[in-house]
Simulated assay, not measured.
Amino acid sequence: MKALIAVLRDPASARHFTPADWEALLGEGRRTRMLARVHHLLAQSVPDLPQPVGARDMLSGHAHYVAHMHVLVRNELRRIGAVAAQVDYPVILLKGAAYLAAQLPLAAGRGLSDIDVLVPRDALDDFERRLLAAGWEFDPSLSAYDDQYYRAWSHELPPMRHPDSSLELDVHHNLIQVTSRSALEAAPLIARAQPVAGTPFHVLAAPDRVLHSALHLLMSDELRGGIRDLYDIYALCRLAAAEDAGFWDDLAAHGRALQLLRPLYYVLAAARDLFALEVPESVWSTVREARPAYPVDRVMSALVRWHLAPRIDQPWRTVVAEQLLYLRSHWVRMPPGMLLRHLAHQSLVALRRPQGV
């Protein structure tokens, strides 16, 4: 991941790339779904950069694809907006859709394949009924077990899709699974949400976008969002700090109030390490108070780095990190008894599935 991280930290570093570096950049960018972001950074920061023809074409192709996806997302937001305009509670866009609707700089070149929204828990049934009446549907192959899993244990409804759209809609009532070891009260986040001018939507406040991205990265299977999510956190922090002198103190204070300092510690440590993110020392001291015991801290820090910045010459580290982080993600999301039942059910389903399906 050396070439990709170099460009994300300093796009001008590509001026010194060898053919092997360009090849590594394309491979790393493709695996992490960040080629369109790389294209945008290079075009913005070093527009006169000479690029190998193959690299230029691949970067441009991915940029055009992401731009097309942005058009599809905007069209779908207009459709969802017609429903959101009918209600008296906030409909909050999350992650990529939020960046796009709020016209944040980090939306440029950022791919997305679904739309996530958050509504208050007591409004969930009403919003679901309105979406169903407007044509959204659940996957007809959804099993009774999976439907129960979403509705009783998860933080969101089962995925929905409109017949006229290829995009999935995920409707959340919380940011983390309700069975998680670290319960999260979403009401303060919803109360701080800010309206998006000219739309019926809201977005999370800047510090809360960072906290949500940290949760999404640390609590998903195998740090599924990977380096892309970490770069989002880095870019969100830099943008918010430039626009609001009180951002860092607010981030630490709200992270403490919501008991989210530990995931914040992990992601800020990784962003400092990989992207040289500058965190004020007073804030970093506050966040570091939430780090786990030294042995756990060292192991977790190593796993995060092995996964986010794998080394080609040591593939075993990536395999070990993925497996342990996968187990951790389930461990923090469910009590032991529920986890064992869930894994047993998933294993049984996998055994019954026909080969090749």
Rank of each mutant, 00 (worst) to 15 (best):
V320Y: 03
R311N: 09
M334D: 07
H330W: 07
L324D: 07
P315A: 14
L324V: 11
P295F: 07
R311W: 08
V319G: 01
Q314M: 06
L303G: 00
H330R: 09
D297K: 07
W316K: 05
L327V: 10
V296R: 14
D297F: 03
L308W: 04
Y326G: 11
W331Y: 13
R305V: 12
E322H: 15
D297Q: 14
H307K: 15
R305H: 15
Y294V: 06
L308C: 11
W316F: 09
L325E: 05
I312M: 12
M334E: 08
I312E: 13
D297P: 03
V319T: 14
Q323P: 02
M334K: 04
R328S: 05
L325F: 04
E322T: 14
V304D: 06
V320Q: 00
S329D: 07
Q314P: 00
Y294F: 02
A302I: 01
P295N: 06
M334A: 05
V332S: 04
Q314V: 08
A302G: 09
V304R: 03
R328F: 01
L303V: 12
A321I: 04
M334W: 06
M300P: 03
T318P: 02
S329A: 09
L327E: 08
V320A: 12
Y294H: 00
V304H: 03
Q323E: 13
S329M: 04
H330M: 04
W331P: 02
S301E: 07
V319R: 07
V296G: 02
A309K: 10
W331N: 06
S329V: 02
V320S: 00
R333Y: 02
Y326L: 13
S329Y: 02
M300H: 05
A302F: 01
Y294C: 00
V319I: 13
S301W: 05
R317V: 01
P310I: 06
L324A: 13
T318Q: 15
W306T: 00
V304S: 09
Y326D: 09
H307C: 12
V320G: 03
M334L: 11
M300F: 10
D313H: 08
L327M: 06
V304P: 00
V319P: 02
R311H: 12
L324N: 06
R298P: 00
V320K: 05
M300I: 10
M300Q: 07
S301Y: 00
L308S: 08
P295L: 04
R298K: 09
R298V: 03
A321V: 03
M334C: 01
M334V: 04
S301H: 13
T318H: 14
I312Q: 11
T318D: 12
D313V: 08
R328D: 02
V299S: 04
R333Q: 05
E322N: 15
D313N: 10
P310A: 11
H330T: 03
L327G: 07
A302V: 02
T318C: 13
L324P: 04
P295A: 05
S329P: 03
T318Y: 15
P295V: 05
P295T: 09
L325K: 06
R328V: 01
S329C: 02
A302D: 08
Y326R: 11
V332Q: 13
P315F: 14
I312H: 11
D313E: 13
Q314S: 06
V332P: 00
L327K: 06
R328N: 05
L308M: 14
M300A: 08
H307A: 14
